[in-house]
Simulated scan of single mutants.
Amino acid sequence: MNDQLSQALASVISQGAGALSSGITFLQSEIPDVIAQLLLWKLVWSGAKAIFFLAVVIACLRLFKFFYQKTALYNEACARIKRAKYGSDEWDAAKNDMDVYEDGSIAGYLGCTVCVLGLGIAGFGVFAQVGNVIQIWLAPKIYLIEYAASLAK
Score class of each variant (00 low, 15 high):
residue 27 L to Y: 15
residue 121 I to Y: 13
residue 92 D to Q: 01
residue 74 Y to D: 11
residue 103 D to M: 15
residue 120 G to P: 01
residue 135 Q to G: 00
residue 61 L to R: 02
residue 60 C to E: 05
residue 77 A to Q: 09
residue 61 L to K: 07
residue 13 I to Q: 14
residue 26 F to M: 11
residue 42 K to I: 00
residue 79 A to I: 08
residue 146 E to D: 15
residue 62 R to Q: 13
residue 20 L to I: 13
residue 121 I to H: 07
residue 122 A to S: 12
residue 7 Q to R: 14
residue 15 Q to D: 10
residue 18 G to R: 08
residue 5 L to H: 07
residue 67 F to S: 02
residue 107 A to W: 13
residue 141 K to C: 02
residue 22 S to C: 04
residue 106 I to G: 09
residue 132 N to M: 00
residue 130 V to E: 00
residue 90 E to D: 10
residue 125 G to F: 01
residue 83 R to K: 11
residue 45 W to H: 08
residue 34 V to P: 01
residue 35 I to T: 06
residue 38 L to D: 04
residue 30 E to S: 08
residue 27 L to R: 06
residue 144 L to Q: 06
residue 96 N to D: 15
residue 81 I to R: 11
residue 137 W to I: 03
residue 117 L to K: 05
residue 91 W to L: 14
residue 18 G to H: 10
residue 15 Q to F: 12
residue 121 I to Q: 06
residue 39 L to R: 02
residue 152 A to D: 08
residue 93 A to D: 14
residue 68 Y to I: 06
residue 50 A to M: 02
residue 114 V to M: 10
residue 4 Q to T: 12
residue 23 G to T: 05
residue 50 A to R: 03
residue 67 F to D: 00
residue 130 V to L: 11
residue 52 F to C: 06
residue 41 W to C: 10
residue 128 A to C: 09
residue 60 C to L: 00
residue 29 S to E: 13
residue 140 P to C: 01
residue 115 C to L: 05
residue 107 A to F: 10
residue 106 I to L: 14
residue 109 Y to V: 03
residue 131 G to K: 01
residue 81 I to N: 11
residue 119 L to K: 03
residue 4 Q to W: 11
residue 23 G to Y: 04
residue 92 D to W: 04
residue 150 S to E: 12
residue 141 K to Q: 07
residue 75 N to P: 00
residue 118 G to P: 03
residue 56 V to K: 12
residue 15 Q to A: 15
residue 97 D to Q: 11
residue 101 Y to F: 15
residue 50 A to C: 01
residue 54 L to P: 03
residue 20 L to N: 13
residue 122 A to I: 00
residue 140 P to A: 02
residue 124 F to S: 07
residue 57 V to E: 04
residue 59 A to N: 07
